[in-house]
Amino acid sequence: MAVMPSAAPPPALSPPQGGIVTRGVARAFGSVQALAGVDLDVRPGAVTALVGPNGSGKTTLLLVLAGLLAPDAGSVSVAGVDPASDGLAARAVTGWMPDAFGTWDSLTAREVLATFAEAYLLPPAVIPGRVSSLLDTVHLAEYADRPASVLSRGQKQRLGLARALVHDPRVLLLDEPAAGLDPRSRVDLRLLVRRLADEGRTVLISSHVLSELDEMVDDAVFLSRGRTVPGAGLAAATEGRRTWHVRSLRVGALQAWLTSVGAAWRSDDESPAPASGTPSSPYARPVPATPPAPADDEPGGVLLDVDGDEGAARLVRDAVAAGVPLVSLAPAGGALEQAYLALEEERR
């Protein structure tokens, strides 16, 4: 995994000031229990992903944290303030970006931001400068004086992000921020979000595009059917057993070596030869089980379950020692994706 520094500190035992802490948050809409017990510890100065399938309660949780919805039960603390009891103070330090950001079509981007700066009671003298710098931040300066209706979806999304930042919030709640963004804007978003976190802000991002989260988050919270999944986090995802993609110049040699050391491997899709581990089926021509065909001299790869980074290091060492021409070794899919899929499997 490219992003995650393994030196990321473990979740603090006593949540520091400025973060988000919830305990047992529940919220029902009529007979639908949208949230059924959310325990959240989001550290300041870090980017935390909120991951879960559709309908798992991500948006509802963000609405509760933003102070728009009152929870039926449980306690919420955003930067040390309870949005249900002291909504004004909580709103003053919280920037919320909804998944669908509507704009006033006739207003220009600059006017939209200036209006929100007024609505957040910024001193009038600082508003023009603040708006200009925000427009630069989200690369909308050249569209500043055009009506918001001509902005593309991605540009509106960036305007929505600027709007959430207008009052310099300490806690950022971003609901699907990358939806509709082009690759360049995603990189910009990643850099911006990282910088905001490095400045000491608390950032909570929900998305179900896991690959884009993978690149920017420090931590993850998994939400399933309105509950946080205990023990499922990014740390568990990086340290636990997960699937790696191993490629070799000669796939046959790799497969032979893996079989000889008793490792359970699977063929990846691009491998030319049928894997020896595949059980024969009545619909397929029976293949010789052992030894693997020496004709497998072409480059190829296999999928292999590996115990964390340490297991991967051992694998490299042993394979090289055995003379297998290794090309690459990488986790198959993002850490979040694997953790997410593992979660789905557990639920079944």
Binding site: A66, T103, R163
Partner: peptide, 16 residues
């Protein structure tokens, strides 16, 4: 109408 077009909640979370 504002609620449907998604502009109401963003105004509600301000300090107004």
């Amino acid at each position: 109408g504002d609620r449907n077009s998604g502009t109401l909640a963003t105004l509600q979370v301000t300090l107004l």
